[in-house]
Amino acid sequence: MTDLTERFRGIFTALITPFKDGAIDYAAYDALVERQIEAGVAGLVPVGTTGEAATLSDDEAEALIARTVRLAAGRVLVMAGAGANDTKKTVEKVQRAEAAGADALLIVTPYYNKPTQAGLAAHYKAAASATRLPVMLYSVPGRCGVEIEPETCATLMKACPNIVAIKEAGGAPERITRLRAAAGDALIIHSGDDGLALPFLSLGAIGVTSVVANVAPREMVGLVNAFRKGDTATALKLHELIAELTDGMFIESNPGPVKAALALSNLAGPEMRLPMVPVSDANRDRLAGILGRFNSAASAFQEIR
């Protein structure tokens, strides 16, 4: 197993971007980052979907990446979001993220355009050729309308040695087997769906790019670590412990629910940038109940342990 593979193993938190009165709340962000590192995550993902990258300016995105690198101080890998639906803009984002000190890049499939597989291949080749950093492809058809076919992934890995990984967020565990068959076991695979973390790990994924970890980093880290040690019973218990919380994080479009949960936990505010708005009052109340049950169950689990 290569050192690079080991660096991608574990929980990578898809960080929110907290806002206050329209601006980035850096104090809250710094505290969130430190909480993640203390919980034992392997990586941090600033400026992704959960970080509301679509409504961040290029300067804000670069500043957040540089800040995350500085806060991490080499303790965890920083994989910066660097995608757009315009290849030229994606290349610019890639170059700015590298200049900001990122360790790796997460590049989403172009949204809205719905390119063919040939278009995806050309897009990713251009982006990967613009950087020396390791690249994780990001296939999320629910948001982008197109997914990266396993054969396209294999072709890209052969053409671009720095394309080494994929975040698979299509909700289909069988995709893992198809990806491994096409690209081989050198392909690093992350689950992009918290609720599928355990089945993905059992099929060959080595990590999770996690939304839930914003709220429950220790439990997510514990799940992956238990599985890695062969303690599948504990991994299953942790999967079941976070199940309702995981469902709750997606009762409205991400990151509305996770921001609401963090606000209920007094860790960050619920503010979002239009066209995203905070969750409804009814869903906020529902999340409060879910969070209360999760906290009680997590405390009981730790006492048993």
Score class of each variant (00 low, 15 high):
L4V: 13
R7G: 12
R7S: 15
F12S: 07
A14V: 11
A14S: 09
I16C: 08
P18W: 02
K20T: 13
D21H: 14
Y29H: 14
A31I: 08
L32S: 06
R35V: 01
A39I: 03
L44R: 00
V47F: 01
V47P: 01
G48N: 06
E52D: 02
A53C: 13
A54F: 11
L56S: 04
L56R: 07
D58C: 09
E62S: 14
L64K: 03
I65S: 00
A66L: 00
R67Q: 06
V69A: 05
G74Y: 06
A82F: 04
G83R: 00
A84K: 04
N85A: 10
D86K: 01
D86W: 02
D86N: 14
K89C: 09
Q95L: 04
A102C: 03
D103H: 15
I107A: 00
V108N: 06
P110Q: 08
Y111W: 13
Y111G: 03
Y112M: 11
A118L: 13
L120P: 00
A122W: 03
H123N: 09
Y124S: 00
Y124A: 03
K125H: 10
A126H: 00
A130S: 12
T131G: 02
R132C: 09
L133I: 06
P134E: 04
L137V: 05
Y138L: 08
S139N: 10
G142F: 13
E147M: 11
E149A: 13
E151N: 06
C153I: 09
L156K: 00
A159N: 04
V164Q: 03
E168S: 10
A169G: 12
G171N: 07
G171T: 09
A182H: 05
A197M: 15
L198F: 12
L203K: 14
T209D: 06
V212T: 15
N225C: 11
A226T: 07
F227I: 08
F227H: 15
K229N: 12
L238W: 04
E240R: 14
E240A: 15
L241W: 08
I242M: 14
A243Y: 10
D247V: 11
F250Y: 14
P255K: 01
G256T: 05
V258W: 08
A261P: 01
A263W: 07
L264W: 05
L267G: 02
G269V: 07
P270V: 07
P278I: 05
P278T: 05
D281K: 13
A282V: 15
R284H: 12
D285G: 14
A288W: 07
R293V: 01
R293W: 07
A297N: 12
A298Q: 06
S299N: 13
